[in-house]
């Protein structure tokens, strides 16, 4: 499985106590050099350099045709005030995920929303950390015997990164995990 990481996602995972989950799920993680350039803290730099040196993470070779896709999408988003504002690094990650058929690892609301309506980019699968943790259960990267075990893992993530998953999203994931546990 191949993924593309955005800045906030990788910063959060660098702080998470079970961060090895990510490299147990994904064979390859792609990162844009502009995303990498934003990572400054020793903890996150150490985490990323570990992933790069173990060939789990790779710098994505950005091309001029992708730059054209970026400009097109940027203009589309900028022209409609109802669409949440997106910054350049967010859009770059979305384009890489589209071009490489990778899963986009992002918790950017704007990105999530573009993939909810855009005729081209709605093909991109976006996972937040919650979906990554869910997949970790299915792939048995984390051992979960009961729903409470999974809830504990989610709570740990929320504490380490100071996140709160929306009740709606959490309910949907818990229902799927519960169904999987019953099998």
């Amino acid at each position: 499985m191949q993924g593309v990481v955005d800045t906030c996602f990788i910063i959060d995972w660098a702080k998470y106590r079970r961060r090895e989950i990510l490299n147990n799920i994904f064979k390859l993680l792609l990162i844009h050099e502009e995303t990498l350039a934003q990572i400054k803290s020793p903890k996150a730099v150490e985490y990323i350099s570990q992933l790069l040196s173990r060939d789990i993470m790779r710098l994505y070779p950005w091309s001029s045709s992708e730059e054209e896709m970026y400009i097109k999408l940027r203009d589309e988003i900028a022209a409609d005030p109802r669409i949440p504002a997106l910054e350049r690094p967010d859009i770059l990650c979305l384009i890489i995920a589209y071009k490489t058929n990778s899963i986009l690892l992002s918790e950017n609301i704007g990105i999530l929303r573009v993939t909810q309506f855009h005729p081209v980019y709605s093909k991109v699968r976006v996972w937040t950390s919650l979906e990554v943790l869910e997949q970790a259960v299915y792939k048995e990267v984390i051992k979960v015997n009961a729903l409470e075990d999974f809830i504990k893992v989610v709570r740990e993530y929320e504490i380490d990164t100071k996140h709160i998953f929306s009740r709606k999203r959490l309910k949907e994931v818990l229902e799927r995990v519960e169904k999987w546990l019953r099998k």
């Binding site: 400054k40 100071k162 709160i164």
Partner: peptide, 19 residues
């Protein structure tokens, strides 16, 4: 600030990322 620097301040201000 960088995103990371801001994120540290956000954590100190106890503002969660809600997703």
């Amino acid at each position: 600030l960088t995103v990371e620097e801001f994120d540290e301040i956000r954590r100190k201000a106890n503002i969660p990322v809600v997703i």
